[in-house]
């Protein structure tokens, strides 16, 4: 039951074209590569240090988190509104419920399709971007090229998750699709313009400088530091998603 609902949600209609749009924008914006220098061995009279380095860690994608955030937020909101807006789907929702699909199944299928709809274009475009960063290295040792991939994925995901949270909550809370789309956008952008450390300002640009200067594998301490910076966002977004879920299953569908 879940699978067929999910397949219908993910692949049907024109929603899938939004996934293509996100794919295009991520690929479009991440074509700038950075190259770096890395010292691996230092021998002073009273000091010696050595570290290990692979060629793939020398090249990374220059990625401007804030600009990606600015254009991805409207898209993610639109995607969420298309996915779970009550007004858009009124007829379909009724059909679902008449055919014994539970509200829980429906909500989780919709949420999963939003998550995958964002993560699939992301992973696909990163796989292409890193391969093209150095074709010669890619043709000789393909895996070395992808050394930075997990780190970048973590970064993208930590940015996307709050977007999903806000967008899901708004598209469930507001019945009119226009409000569901416009209210979060207006809220986020106005808060940002007013420099009130609004929702859009506080995650990605904050966690970005940590990554910006560093090329190579991330030390475990940095990684934990990164996770702790992202933690408030993750908690807030999880609360938003749970709230959306509660509203969704308690809403009267008649």
């Amino acid at each position: 039951m879940f699978l067929s609902v999910f397949r219908w949600e993910f692949l049907s209609g024109r929603r899938f074209y939004l996934v293509f749009l996100i794919y295009f924008l991520v690929l479009f914006s991440s074509g700038t590569f950075t190259s770096e220098s890395w010292t691996v061995e230092v021998k002073y009279p009273d000091y010696v240090s050595k570290e290990f380095l692979t060629p793939g860690s020398m090249i990374d994608v220059w990625w401007n988190a804030s600009s990606l955030w600015w254009f991805l937020f409207p898209l993610v909101t639109a995607y969420a509104v298309f996915m779970i807006s009550y007004e858009f789907d009124k007829g379909i929702l009724r059909t679902y419920l008449l055919s014994n699909v539970g509200k829980r199944t429906l909500f989780s299928a919709k949420l999963l399709s939003i998550l995958l709809g964002l993560l699939i274009p992301l992973v696909a475009s990163l796989l292409i971007v890193y391969a093209l960063a150095d074709l010669m290295l890619f043709s000789s040792t393909p895996l070395e090229v992808y050394v930075n991939l997990p780190r970048r994925l973590l970064m993208y995901t930590s940015m996307l998750y709050p977007m999903i949270g806000i967008a899901t909550l708004c598209s469930v809370a507001f019945r009119k699709p226009l409000y569901a789309f416009a209210v979060p956008l207006a809220g986020v952008y106005v808060l940002n313009m007013a420099r009130l450390t609004g929702i859009s300002a506080y995650i990605p640009p904050q966690c970005y400088p940590e990554f910006q200067g560093s090329i190579g594998l991330m030390p475990i301490g940095w990684f934990l530091n990164e996770l702790s910076m992202v933690l408030p966002t993750v908690v807030t977004s999880s609360i938003a998603i749970v709230a959306a879920y509660l509203i969704f299953i308690r809403r009267d569908m008649t």
Binding site: F33, S35, E36, S37, W38, T39, V40, E41, V42, K43, Y44, P45, L53, P55, M58, I59, D134
Partner: peptide, 17 residues
């Protein structure tokens, strides 16, 4: 910064376009 007779050694890698 070196005392007489001392030396330092650095090795590294760079990626160039």
């Amino acid at each position: 910064e070196l005392n007489p007779g001392e030396s330092i050694y650095r090795r590294g890698y760079s990626y160039y376009r």
